[in-house]
């Protein structure tokens, strides 16, 4: 069965909602939750996730909130932390990874910490049995892909196109997927621009999809209640899960 990973921005509109939503998504077929750490300067994100980041910060999101939400959800649904490197770095990487491990978090996804800079921390990740998710981009050469995936843990995050999250772009990924598979048995998940309409197409030849902006888009709607937001996200999750497994 192909897997579905859901990204949600922690603390928008508040932490209790984030925990409720994560648990509801877990019951609706999401295999892993990416708990997003809001950041003031999210350069890999498009306008939707950027807005959720700003709103979460405006409403008082603190790094501590990631820990409290993880405590509530990580035993019930597989949880990863997703965020830009600076907030993690400020917490102190050694302390951070111990904390993540003790809260049953399974890995971290850090879009601005490429392979070369991550090497410094690989022992710490290993010591705490945490995956530092490897990214592969459509701009990468075969030679680089080999380097990136040779030690990949949990899953490989294949960026669907050169661009930022939530853009309506697509690129032919067939060759790059073949290249990845020739070097690694780690499952490959595609992220960026995956929604109800694109999920089936984007999941071709890979083992799962990562969905962010499509969920956040529902969270940002201001004419529906929080309960309705959870219902709609759960419904979206069921649709995407069945589409990728058709």
């Amino acid at each position: 069965m192909k897997q579905l990973v859901a990204y949600i921005t922690t603390g928008y509109p508040d932490v209790n909602f984030t925990a409720d939503l994560a648990l509801a998504l877990g019951e609706s077929g999401v295999d892993s939750i990416e708990l997003g750490v809001a950041f003031s300067d999210p350069v890999a994100d498009g306008p939707i996730i950027e807005k959720a980041n700003f709103l979460a910060l405006e409403r008082g999101f603190r790094f501590q909130d990631i820990l409290s939400v993880s405590k509530k959800i990580a035993k019930d649904v597989d949880t990863l932390w997703m965020g830009y490197f600076n907030p993690f770095y400020q917490y102190n990487i050694s302390k951070l990874l111990q904390k993540a491990s003790s809260l049953h978090v399974s890995g971290l996804i850090i879009p601005d910490l490429p392979h070369e800079e991550a090497l410094l921390y690989s022992d710490e990740f290993e010591k705490n049995s945490l995956a530092n998710i490897s990214f592969v981009a459509p701009t990468d050469t075969k030679e680089r892909i080999k380097e990136l995936v040779s030690n990949a843990q949990k899953f490989i995050y294949l960026v669907a196109y050169a661009g930022i999250t939530g853009a309506g772009k697509s690129e032919d990924l067939q060759k790059i997927v073949t290249d990845i598979k020739s070097y690694s048995n780690t499952p490959v998940y595609v992220g960026f621009g995956v929604n109800e309409k694109t999920a089936k197409e984007k999941s071709k030849g890979v083992d799962g999809v990562i969905v962010g902006s499509a969920f956040i888009d529902i969270l940002l709607q201001d004419n529906i209640t929080l309960t309705q937001k959870i219902e709609r996200c759960s419904k979206l999750c069921q649709i995407i899960k069945s589409k990728i497994n058709e």
Partner: peptide, 12 residues
Amino acid sequence: GGRYVPETLMPA
């Protein structure tokens, strides 16, 4: 210093 950018930019 270093290079703290999304993977898409690394080849460039």
